[in-house]
């Protein structure tokens, strides 16, 4: 598609630079390079600076890498799909109030039963509750605003934003009434944390994310058609309502599962999705989706390496990511405005 087969080969061999440029124009070359970078980062993270027993470090670190992979997949894929559904590239699924809901649920638990009970709460029960409530919420919102006669994605987004704001306000109100210790426990828990994930939860999340991605595989070409917008897609025979329902369901499950595992990661998806659009070299989802996932790995692993090994900082990666994400968001908005 990007090479022109009609150009006759010239008598002189093309220079190495030309050939390199031609290769770089191929989406699979770009993806392969990115894959190699991720593998290198994984190797450095796993085998570099082992403090004690290698096997212990490996076990511990590979779990973090696995958590990162699950989160990058969930966040990267869901953001790209969400962008395609909404025809808007500066949104993240969190606009629908997913993370606000997550914080709300945790706050309610602490509010009602205190931080000691919250900490003692069975992790699996909490994880399942969080997912069920988040998915139920988004499905309700979806069927109410998109399933009916109105069928407006924009109305759905608007209501999502309003509800998200409401949840945040309500959460804040409850947090104000917590005693300081409870509040401290809660705010610690609300920072996304990729290290030390619970093994069972990690496995379960991975299963959910893989299932959600599997639902997308047969729709990858339909997703490409959706980039043309709803009217054109309908004209090309896409059953828009059904397809969006499946896509939205898959996005909800992925976001809910990964948020329930590591906590809210707000702007991360926005960064990787937009980087993926420019890096992938193709608008096709076969390329943009894996690119977004791998770029997510680069961000998370690279960030973790810099924080942990270069800066020797024990803090959470998510603060840095939110900060960088905020800056990136501003950049996107300003650039859009300038056009």
């Amino acid at each position: 598609m990007l090479t022109d087969p009609t150009v006759a080969p010239t008598s002189t061999a093309p220079s190495a630079r030309v050939r390199l440029a031609a290769a770089w124009a191929q989406p699979w070359v770009r993806l392969a390079v990115l894959g190699a970078v991720v593998l290198a980062l994984v190797a450095v993270y796993l085998f570099g600076q082992v403090p004690g027993s290698l096997s212990f470090a490996l076990e511990y670190r590979s779990r973090t890498v696995a958590a990162m992979l699950v989160v990058s997949t969930a966040v990267g894929v869901s953001t790209v799909v969400f962008h395609t559904i909404t025809q808007n590239r500066i949104l993240t699924p969190s606009i629908m109030g997913f993370d606000a809901f997550y914080v709300l649920i945790s706050t309610v638990i602490v509010f009602v039963s205190g931080s000691a009970a919250f900490l003692a709460f069975d992790q699996l029960t909490l994880w399942i509750t969080q997912i069920v409530v988040m998915v139920a919420f988004s499905v309700l919102l979806f069927t109410w605003l998109f399933g009916g006669k109105r069928r407006s994605i924009h109305l759905m987004l608007l209501v999502g934003i309003v509800l998200g704001t409401f949840f945040r306000a309500f959460t804040e109100w409850m947090q104000r009434m917590l005693d300081p210790l409870d509040f401290q426990v809660l705010s610690d828990a609300m920072f996304a944390s990729l290290t030390r994930p619970d093994e069972t939860l990690l496995t379960l999340t991975a299963v959910l994310v893989v299932l959600a991605c599997a639902a997308l595989v047969p729709l990858r070409r339909t997703l490409d058609v959706l980039t043309l917008g709803e009217p054109a897609a309908v004209g090309l025979g896409v059953d828009h309502r059904r397809v969006v329902l499946v896509l939205f369901g898959s996005v909800s499950v992925m976001i809910a599962a990964s948020t329930a595992l590591v906590g809210p990661i707000l702007f991360f998806g926005l960064i990787v999705a937009n980087l993926a659009y420019s890096y992938a070299g193709s608008f096709r989802h076969v390329w943009t989706l894996p690119t977004a996932v791998l770029l997510g790995m680069v961000c998370l692993l690279g960030g973790q390496l810099v924080l942990e090994r270069v800066l020797g900082y024990g803090g959470t990666l998510s603060t840095v990511i939110d900060f960088a994400g905020g800056l990136f968001f501003l950049y996107l908005v300003l650039r859009k405005g300038a056009r």
Binding site: M1, Q87, N88, R89, R221, D224, V225, T227, L228, G229, A232, L236, G237, F283
Partner: peptide, 16 residues
């Protein structure tokens, strides 16, 4: 179209 498509990409969609 919001995405960056080439003419060829667009015409290809007609065959979808």
């Amino acid at each position: 179209v919001a995405a960056r498509l080439t003419v060829h990409d667009l015409v290809e969609f007609g065959r979808f």
